[in-house]
Design a protein around this nucleic acid. Sequence first.
DNA 1: CCGAGATTTGCACGCGCGTGCAACATTGCT
DNA 2: AGCAATGTTGCACGCGCGTGCAAATCTCGG
Lengths: 343, 343
Amino acid sequence: MEMRERSFVTAEEVAKLAGVSRSAVSRTFTDGASVSEGTRKKVLQAAETLGYHVNHLARGLSHERSNIVCLVVSDVSTPYQAQMIDIVTKKLQSVGKIAMLINTVGSAEEVAAAMRQTVNYRAEAVIVLSGTPSPSLIATCLSNGQRVILINRDDQLSGPTNIVVQNGPAGREAYQLLKRAGCARLAIVSSTAGTPSLMARETAFIAAAQEDGRDVQIMRTGPTGYATGAEAARQLFGRATTPDGIFCITDLLAMGCMDVARDEFGIMVPDELSIIGFDDIDQAAWIAYNLTTFRQPLGAIAEHIASLLASDGSTASANETISFHPVPVWRRSVRPRAPRSGE
Amino acid sequence: MEMRERSFVTAEEVAKLAGVSRSAVSRTFTDGASVSEGTRKKVLQAAETLGYHVNHLARGLSHERSNIVCLVVSDVSTPYQAQMIDIVTKKLQSVGKIAMLINTVGSAEEVAAAMRQTVNYRAEAVIVLSGTPSPSLIATCLSNGQRVILINRDDQLSGPTNIVVQNGPAGREAYQLLKRAGCARLAIVSSTAGTPSLMARETAFIAAAQEDGRDVQIMRTGPTGYATGAEAARQLFGRATTPDGIFCITDLLAMGCMDVARDEFGIMVPDELSIIGFDDIDQAAWIAYNLTTFRQPLGAIAEHIASLLASDGSTASANETISFHPVPVWRRSVRPRAPRSGE
DNA sequence: CCGAGATTTGCACGCGCGTGCAACATTGCT
DNA sequence: AGCAATGTTGCACGCGCGTGCAAATCTCGG
């Protein structure tokens, strides 16, 4: 502990101090290796004294597993992404993996650079939470023996494992909720992002509405976020006929929308306006919002990721799509039932 | 690209395909190495064909720099932490480092395990955002040549680099703001976490108040978060004399507090109650809150971290504390000025 | 006390890479 | 042409570790 080598302690040094061979040190820290209790004690003692820690990088060099899993994400500070990172990293750690976080802005070049980094660091798996890596990049990762897991990037690329949430049913259910609440003038607050996952929610809602012969206004005033929801509300409620039921394809959009509707237009939620979001971020449960929304089963998703990494990878079919069902979370941003007609 | 080796491509294979020695391949991907234009072309061509990427793990084995920086964090999904992670990882990447995220629950054992992981993976630096690693663990990291950077964990341990925000002045300024707003009955909403950083805000506020001979109620009803702020408000406003000026040592606390005050007690903010938070998380700017708060200069902090990692590390003094000034962010949760007395 | 079997230990090799050193090729100048 | 200077290439070694293999040690019954 008093060594001022300014460098990492090696097994060699531990071996010298313990008076054994380097192999003995190595075996002491290798599960299932054969070491006598005596030398193990000596080695552990020496290791403790020197502050020795096995070099996982060197270990992974010969052994095939690096235990490194890369997360490719953008908008890390966004509640949804942050929650995902939180849960996934915890789960990864619980199965002995360690997470590398690659923060992109979602542009094609940055995502490409991120994917290359994952193979530079010999990550045994790549989990893509944002952006859409090109098929050739994915192919490179796969051919290098990495597992590639795309989450809610349901372009349904062949090769990687796709984990998706069933947006369609949720979109339809959102419509049913608003219908049951007696909403007559429907709107969707969407974003310009246009990712398949978000589009699916939107189109399913519209499809369900059209089956009832009802029209839906669509707002798409910017990227997926609070400010865009706010702007959408300003435009929606600045018009002659204002909506009384809004499906926001994201909780953040819903919150921006709700805040502007209430603060700038004096609209009461849910009495005059019912709003539904998606994701069930922490803020959705806050008193100020009390947002009815759909929860993505992040726990189950993380669990599935862990099981994927645990499985050999060769046994599992390469092109696999697993879908999870978002569960509706009832709160108070949707009117409980239709008002009486004369009210 | 068509190779189905199910394993990473090595420089050896590239060399064979390109018809050069492995050294040539290595030099092609090493800055400043001497390779003729001809062989470089051949190598790059072969590398592209095979999908070769330099193994950074092996590179770091002989070379001293792993370029890996570990972030030790808990409560990753919290807006403040998420924002910190976002900014720091971006900055790290911009200077060629890659971030490993170690997610702890803050318990001593988990933090200890996290610190050990950092040396297992030969991280060249450890950035601690949550939890308090024991001095001996820090010593181990330092003696192994790692940089240890503690952020807002201002126990002022000797050895690591401490980056702190000046909580004291901010706490005093918070008091001045409330005083100027004419608040007569002051309260602090704090948490049971009791980290020095949070305590500093609290004690500075109280000290400033006491210099004016004024008393301050202190609420400490749980961990640092929304629910605790909400609970604090329930207790505060359930009493006979209710506060009209509250300093919440965290934005999340402020939001919980504000929501309950408004929703459950019908209190108008800022007319009847002025609230100040701390951190300036994204939600503070939301219309529903419009929270006056203090912004931590995260950009400058990240910049400083980057410069620390760029510097040799041997030149910089080991035991260093850099402090940054939080900047007040004026919004509308504090009454602009004192009301007329007869109002 | 002896020997067969079980256990432990050390040696040596390889994992993929960077790099010093010497051999080799190229260039430019007289 | 001759020669020095410059540029390029390959060899071999080491980074820290796991592990197969054979030598060494231990165990235990006869």
